[in-house]
């Protein structure tokens, strides 16, 4: 369940507020087992164990960083070898034009630079985080409340069963709404 399915903005949703992390985890787990579609969970800090509870796949961000690093490494090497050995070879202290071992420090720095900047850039784009962005923020979700949001894909959504599930996990309150944005 990669994040592609949180782009639909026009379905109805049901959101339950929790006070404790444990209740949220248990409720998320039960909701998924009961067959509800979990839109997302909003928490004030990174809650460990939610990935499994929501059934999220491992993110591919690590691969993005690796690829970006490999790209930086190639750029660093090509830049140095081409400028020092091909475009304008200069004799510096009798060293070979292609002084490969001496190119390692700059290559390393460029690897790190590319990897870090591109990984963060992709992270921001992938999560749609950018300047002048206005998205719905659930009340106190950035303070001390945990919010589990279920999607109501069609009329078959069983609101009563959902309410019972939330109550069983000490939900503080349950709200319904129309738009996610």
């Amino acid at each position: 369940m990669r994040a592609t399915n949180n782009r639909t903005n026009n379905a109805r949703f049901t959101a339950a507020y929790f006070k404790r992390e444990e209740d949220l985890l248990a409720a998320t787990h039960s909701a998924r087992e009961a067959g509800f579609v979990i839109h997302d969970v909003y928490t004030p800090y990174a809650v460990h164990g939610l990935d499994e509870a929501m059934g999220l796949q491992r993110t591919r961000m690590g691969w993005v960083a690796f690829a970006a690093g490999a790209f930086g490494l190639m750029c660093g090497l090509i830049l140095q070898i081409w400028t020092s050995a091909y475009d304008w070879p200069l004799n510096v202290g009798g060293k070979p034009f292609n002084s490969f071992p001496l190119f390692i420090p700059v290559t390393f720095e460029l690897t790190v630079l590319f990897s870090g900047l591109i990984a963060i850039g992709v992270l921001f784009m992938r999560n749609r985080l950018w300047l002048f962005n206005r998205r719905r923020v659930f009340e106190r979700a950035t303070d001390d409340r945990f919010v589990l949001v279920l999607r109501q894909p069609d009329a078959s959504f069983d609101a009563e069963r959902a309410a019972a599930l939330f109550a069983g996990h000490h939900a503080l309150s349950v709200i319904e709404g129309d738009q996610f944005v």
């Binding site: 994040a3 909003y42 939610l50 990935d51 929501m54 990897s115 979700a141 919010v147």
Partner: peptide, 25 residues
């Protein structure tokens, strides 16, 4: 804050990138 709303889908990727950044730094 770039429109951050505490979404766990975001947190999940965020934590991975944070770890990658730490491993690079």
């Amino acid at each position: 804050s770039l429109g951050w709303n505490g979404s766990h889908r975001t947190w999940s990727r965020y934590e991975t990138v944070y770890t990658v950044m730490a491993a690079l730094a």
